[in-house]
Amino acid sequence: MDLLDYAFMQRALLAAVLVGVTAPAIGTYLVQRRQAVMGDGIGHVAMTGVALGFLLNASPVWMATLVAVIGAVGMELIRSRGKTSGDIALAMLFYGGLAGGVMIINLAPGGSTANLTSYLFGSITTVSAEDVTAVVILAAFVIAVTLGLRRQLFAVCQDEEFARVTGLPVRFLNLLIAVTAAVTVTVAMRIVGLLLVSAMMVIPVAAAQRVTRGFTATLSVAMVIGVLVSLSGTTLTYYIDAPSGGTIVLLAIGVFMVMTALSTPLARRRANAARAAEEVCTRDDVKV
């Protein structure tokens, strides 16, 4: 395969594998607690970080990580208050982050919103060696948290009140989920792009759910789908010269549709079995 002869493609494919593993891994927990849009919000906030990187002549990846983590912690604090006004506060944070990014990038010497395009939609040619180092370190953190603490995170996302009464440090774990989601956003930023990163957190999980019954199975299948689509999307981008983020996300949606089609007969059979079971139950009840 000649594409592996290019150093930039080696870096892009390595970054793609790490995106494919990490985004669905943290995404499974976000979907579990019905917080699927959180990744989208963090992606918006991370824009300010990228722009700050340009302005301060610092690494956009590390600046984006810093700002995204601060934003995600803010979102978690708003969420944990559970106020109805939280929705509005989150919207302020999302769009404030996006608007801040657009403003700051234009203040940077020679900067314009054009600089942001590759960060918004992903680009395989721009993954620098320095980026790869950052992405590997950040991805290792995400994998350690999402797999190493999966029983604790599962409990917290399944039933927060119950988790608190088992004595788990729920507040800490919630903050950890937020920070991990933020870190994942910056892992995915170079390949998938900030506007599409949330898709990689959600779509592989949704696709996996079509065929799985358990949590560990969903987590594993989602990660496999994530790696498959991000690797094939990155490779395809090499030949067709399109933004990698769009290609990867469209492939993920394709996988979702195929799995939905495949699983429909399965789901129908399960629904029939469940209905049959309920009919038996009803007759029992009448007897009682």
Binding site: T28, V31, Q32, R33, R34, A36, R151, Q152, F154, A155, C157, Q158, D159, E161, F162, A163, V165, T166, G167, L168, V205, Q209, T212, R213, G214, F215, T216, A217, T218
Partner: peptide, 30 residues
């Protein structure tokens, strides 16, 4: 906390991602 078993008021044990009965019950063991 391991001296207390708590059943919160719920109508469902499900969440946004599928989980098996054993997985949900095992979370009590934490």
């Amino acid at each position: 906390w391991s001296r207390i078993g708590y059943v919160p008021q719920r109508t469902t044990a499900a969440s946004g991602v599928p989980a098996t009965v054993r997985e949900v019950v095992s979370s009590g063991r934490l």
